[in-house]
Design a binder for these strands. Structure first.
Length: 283
DNA sequence: GCGACAG
DNA sequence: ATCTTGTCGC
């Protein structure tokens, strides 16, 4: 366990507070969600983003692969996909995931905007939490505010929030095992942070944790996740996860061949340095 | 003080 | 996030 730089964390806390002031929790979209029949009117493209890491990373200069995919709606067919290799020099600290991953997300979105702006998604599902966060500002909110795009947070694991009325990952899983398929995550203060959802609505046991990111209400967020789910994890994120994992494995294989540490001997072909990292993209 | 803690 | 085999079920 590496020690956490508290000075850095304090800086991050201030930054989260600043950005949170710009976060919108009501729908501000170019499509409409009809809660009564669960239909989405005018929605054609949903995005998904995720990052994978190859095993055996050094620790402070982590190689990683960020993936951005855009799927058609409601067919959920891949319209666009892009993976970019990056190096991340920011440590992971629970509650501050965005500081580690947001820069990479910004990068793939700028590439999409540059090359195929017409494929820009109307809403993006982010692998991580939105307002279901200790300070109500998870990575989905962070990314949404910085890029000013509608985002939804979808986490596979429960992030502990002390205001959550005695609930923990274990008790929640237990309830779903007993037939519950949807469960509001309400804090002691009465605040609803998000919702645990079993997309199939059947005997599914493992819920995903949905929360609004930026410009998307929780109700719309949950409707979207349900409409995009063929499996436990909604397709946009599932595909992004799959693609970025392929990239991470490629890095593993490459480093298994190359002699030990060519160091500054030569540069990897096709690489470029962008804003704090060496990158390589492929599609 | 110790444990818990998205990816 | 990543390290990991078999195994139960549709």
């Amino acid at each position: 366990m590496m020690a956490v730089d508290q000075t850095l964390v304090h800086k991050w806390e201030r930054r989260q507070k600043e950005l949170r002031a710009q976060c919108e929790d009501a729908d501000r979209l170019d499509f409409e969600y009809r809660a009564d029949n669960g239909a989405f009117v005018g929605l054609e493209r949903v995005g998904g983003i995720d990052i994978s890491y190859p095993r055996g990373n050094s620790g402070n200069q982590d190689l990683a692969v960020v993936a951005l995919v855009v799927l058609s709606f409601p067919r959920l067919e891949v319209l666009y996909e892009q993976c970019v290799e990056i190096t991340i020099d920011v440590p992971y600290v629970a509650g501050f995931l965005a500081f580690r991953e947001a820069a990479a997300y910004k990068q793939v979105f700028s590439e999409l905007f540059r090359s195929q702006p017409e494929l820009m998604p109307q809403v993006v599902l982010v692998d991580g939490n939105g307002m279901l966060h200790p300070r109500r500002f998870g990575s989905a909110c962070h990314v949404g505010v910085e890029l000013d795009i509608p985002t939804v947070g979808v986490a596979k694991n429960f992030l502990h929030i002390d205001d959550m009325a005695g609930r923990d990952a274990r008790s929640i899983k237990h309830e779903f095992r007993c037939g519950v398929s949807e469960m509001e995550l309400v804090g002691r203060s009465g605040t609803c942070y998000g919702m645990a959802v079993a997309p199939q609505g059947q005997a599914a046991v493992n819920p995903v944790f949905v929360s609004s990111g930026h410009r998307v209400s929780l109700q719309t967020a949950v409707g979207l996740v349900r409409s995009c789910s063929l499996h436990r994890v909604p397709e946009p994120i599932r595909v992004a996860d799959q693609r970025s994992r392929v990239g991470a494995r490629m890095i593993e294989q490459r480093s298994a061949q190359e002699p030990t540490k060519p160091s500054e001997a030569y540069e990897s072909p096709n690489s470029s340095t962008v804003d704090g990292g060496c990158t390589r993209s492929y599609s």
